[in-house]
Amino acid sequence: MEKVALKDSGYRLKKAKILHTKKMTANEKFFEIALRENSPLDHEPGQFIMVSLPGIGEVPISVCSSPVKRDSFDLCVRAVGKVTRSLHKLKAGDEIDIRGPYGKGFPIRILEGNDLLIIAGGLGIAPLRSLITYILDNRRDFGKVHILFGCKEPKEMLFGDELEDWNKRTDLHYACTVDRADPDWAGNVGVITTLIPGVDIDPIRTFAAVVGPPIMYNFVIKELLAKGIPENQILLSFERNMKCGNGKCGRCQIQNLYVCQDGPVFHYERIKNLSEAF
């Protein structure tokens, strides 16, 4: 068996350098990363990349910065296993390899001009931050913007400074809640669905973008439908086990859809009847 170099390989890696890291919580770490020669990643909000540590493995991670930022991009990684724990050991100046971006992100062209209700549960804020920062970079192209954020406890809150900033802005509406308060917490307590009835929206011109743990979806969707948002205006991003990102390995398949290529962002209308979706 002969081994030859394969220029067109779908598994070819691009070298990238970590510019900056920040410990965000006990389990999540923030990375700012630049490709060689600062060439742009050229992603769409909601897309993901495969992050490689040769010798250890490869994992799908959402890009969590706006594509308007061209010189570098951001990731927010939760340490859960082999690759993500090893990523947490890296610091500014270290190199990683990536491939991508992959998948279909949020349909920006369709969202422009409409109102947006953005709902993030926990780590779901990562892919949504690419959308939110993109909207803020192009604020006048979008209608009203509501952001609802929920997490288990105040100490698990990600991007705290930015949430604070969003809270202060006059060109968007922001609300957050925690499942369990701690003594310093003065805000809302309760699951994220409790925030939905209170938002003032015109359902016909509102698109909802929802990302969170699987269990959140059923409850949130019910509330959104109750608000009168049409099914094709609800966007969800799915997490599945992924190995290739190329629609081949079969890991991410939900019935006849491949989350890595057909998603990870889906219109609710398209996937609502797929029994393996939720």
Binding site: K3, K7, Y11, R12, K15, P54
Partner: peptide, 15 residues
């Protein structure tokens, strides 16, 4: 790939 810092991984096909 080589584990040395900065080394590029090479994509290959077995034929």
């Amino acid at each position: 790939f080589k584990m040395a810092k900065g080394a590029d991984a090479e994509a290959v096909v077995e034929l």
